[in-house]
Design a protein around this nucleic acid. Structure first.
Lengths: 212, 212
DNA sequence: TTGATTACATACCGATTGGTATGTAAGGTT
DNA sequence: AACCTTACATACCAATCGGTATGTAATCAA
């Protein structure tokens, strides 16, 4: 019998395994959740072996943390790069941010779901590390609107309303809208959540729709 | 060797197994999520054997459907029994409902999470049956406020605002608030979500706080 | 050039998974 | 009393789970 010819068989280039695993995790976790996504699933989707997985991550939980942290960085970079920050008026920046969030809802449902929201829903009691990562991610979401809300409130104070608590409502609308969209199989309720949040802001800051 | 004496060993009374399994599922799924809760976990928590489980449920997925449907019925009965429905003014009924929702947040975190929201987050793409059950549950939540919102809007129309879309915001605030509470390990953001929703309604319907 | 380190692949493991096959005792029907 | 059905319990199963042990090829510092 001849010696087996070692077929490299479409190997993932050296150095890319970790990034591929996280990307695979993002896709699979968004569609099946964290617990239902197995390490073997991830390796198959990423095109690497289990050896690669446990070389880069000490455990499945560690991958979960890395996934959420990567998500935080990804979304942070995306929003930072967007021109909604360019507007002069702080409330206009906030409203433009809402436009951007609504535009994201044009994608297929799994692609506008939130990795942090999905994972923390399952793991908040069973994995302190993943919960903490999700908290960082959610808080980083506050920061996309918090400075603008602070400026808007400085120019137009509203009794009983803080910028922090208003910033939270953007995440509430986002996460709540996603759950309703998942349940109804339709992005419409997610869009409506942003619409109502915009109407609320316009009422708070005395900025009716027609007064652009 | 003597014949083994069959010890009945604290058996669950005949006829209770199904209800106990669903109660165990409610507790475990709220804490660990659906996928991470195994059939063995459920049987152990309910104090029954696997034979009992698969006698009552054709599969784990079937239990998931039964769990969510039971949840819908449970919460429906709870809100129907509550005296918030008694107020004369429709908006007062809606505001009293919000008071009730805030009161529920006094419980430990896992006990005010939503079974439908948790399960649909994980299963919306992998189990059509559970997703459909979750949709029924979410929609039944609309109904707790929808008739009152319709009356309130009939008496005080708001251009561009429908009762259906407003009713959805109660679920958005609920589900979004729960996710933030899980991530931060604190019920405060869930409470804030209801506070902002109340302020929004008061603005929409011209009903300031002091005018009780 | 050598030696160490990094980045994987291969092969394997015990435990757990959802599910099944079969037995049995209780309760209702005739 | 005989029989059937319901409601479980017991015992088992193949597949999959997260994780480990070990081997090897590429990279890099000296």
């Amino acid at each position: 019998m001849t010696a087996e010819t070692r077929v490299p068989l479409l190997r993932v280039p050296r150095g890319e395994a970790r990034a591929r695993l996280i990307e695979a995790a993002r896709n699979l976790v968004r569609r099946k959740g964290f617990a239902a996504t197995s390490v073997d699933d991830l390796c198959a989707a990423a095109g690497v072996t289990k050896g690669a997985f446990f070389h880069h991550f000490a455990s499945k939980e560690a991958l979960g943390v890395a996934l959420v942290d990567d998500w935080t960085e990804m979304t942070g970079a995306m929003f930072a790069a967007h021109p909604y920050n360019a507007k002069d008026d702080p409330l206009d920046r906030v409203l433009a941010y809402l436009d951007l969030r609504r535009a994201l809802l044009e994608q297929p449902l799994p692609d506008f779901t939130c990795v942090a929201g999905t994972t923390v829903q399952e793991t908040y009691e069973t994995s302190p590390a993943i919960r903490a990562a999700a908290e960082r991610s959610i808080r980083s979401g506050f920061d996309h609107v918090l400075p603008h809300l602070e400026q808007a409130l400085a120019a137009h104070p509203v009794p009983g309303v803080t910028a922090e608590s208003l910033a939270q409502q953007f995440q509430v609308a986002t996460q709540g809208g996603i759950i309703l969209a998942k349940a109804m199989g339709d992005p419409a309720p997610a869009r409506a959540a942003f619409d109502h949040l915009e109407r609320y802001l316009r009422l708070l800051f005395d900025r009716p729709e027609n007064a652009a």
